[in-house]
């Protein structure tokens, strides 16, 4: 049995929240640079250049790249041979988020659904736990902004619509989202499972590094085809017209019920933040 103290978890979560918000991944920066080569719209090019500058300023000055520092979505993948000591896992994650949002001068954006009263410390966090054999302990922090989350949807399609029906739903979603999710976006698609797993698959699809190929060749082909369709919409950077509406489409798929075809589209803005660490 490997023991991990909650203090280590708190410190790791705190750090990840700050770093995710201030250090944009190299994969995303690379995608901006490639997009800049292909963008034809003058406004679009200007925007992509400024996004690269923005990421550089955020990293060197240690300020968040975007003022919406998001809902703290935390993934914990742990081995079943790990024993957590000194307190509870969930409490440790919450405390890490609380400290990270305080110490990193991150915006607290979580409120009561009706009264809109702010909780004051950006908690609760969203915790997704995955337990498998082994003694690993991996934490991913993926702060998610409201603008792009608001444009995301889950639907239960009729199985008969098939691949074309799913593609139509995905492209339509990007079209209707227009400028609101801060394009260029990443489109996470979850297909299969149940209502709620489709949404989780879509979210997990966003964690895959940009520029990586889907290990399933059939899905890789769909990703390329759907990206092409999305980028034919003309929405462009910030929705002001252009070639690059999305940087990538990522698909995660699993089997579903014989009566169902659940599909979720989770839209990620260009502030595609996630950082991970192993304890």
């Amino acid at each position: 049995m490997r023991e991990i103290h909650v203090d280590a978890i708190i410190a790791a979560v705190r750090d990840l929240c700050i770093r995710a918000n201030t250090e944009l991944g190299e994969d995303v920066l690379d995608a901006f640079r490639k997009a800049l080569e292909r963008e034809e719209s003058p406004a679009g090019k200007d925007i992509l250049k400024r996004l690269i500058q923005n990421a550089e300023i955020a990293r060197t000055e240690g300020v968040p790249m975007c003022q919406d520092t998001g809902f703290a979505v935390i993934f914990v993948d742990m081995g079943q041979d790990v024993r957590i000591v000194g307190g509870g896992l969930r409490e440790a994650v919450e405390e890490g988020v609380r400290q990270g949002y305080r110490d990193g001068y991150l915006r607290k954006s979580i409120c009561h659904p009706f009264t809109r009263q702010n909780t004051g410390d950006n908690t609760p966090a969203i915790l997704h736990l995955d337990i498998r054999p082994g003694d690993h302990f991996r934490i991913t922090a993926a702060p998610k902004g409201g603008g792009s989350e608001n444009m995301s949807r889950v639907t239960m399609l009729t199985p008969a619509v098939g691949v074309q029906g799913v593609k139509d739903f995905v492209v339509q979603r990007v079209k209707e989202s227009g400028p609101n999710p801060c394009p260029p976006t990443i489109v996470g698609v979850g297909i299969g499972g149940t209502f709620e797993t489709a949404a989780l698959l879509a979210k997990k699809a966003l964690l895959r590094p940009l520029g990586s190929l889907n290990p399933d060749p059939e899905l890789a082909a769909l990703e390329a085809d759907w990206l092409e369709a999305v980028n034919s919409l003309g929405i462009g950077p910030q929705g002001l017209g252009g070639r690059i509406t999305s940087l990538a489409v990522h698909i995660e798929m699993m089997p579903c019920h014989i009566a169902s075809l659940p599909v979720a589209v989770n839209i990620q803005c260009h502030a595609a933040r996630h950082k991970e660490t192993e304890l």
């Binding site: 400024r50 923005n54 990421a55 300023i57 003022q67 400028p179 002001l240």
Partner: peptide, 10 residues
């Protein structure tokens, strides 16, 4: 005017 959404640091 449109400002660049997400370019908060800039």
């Amino acid at each position: 005017f449109a400002a660049i959404g997400g370019a908060g640091a800039l």
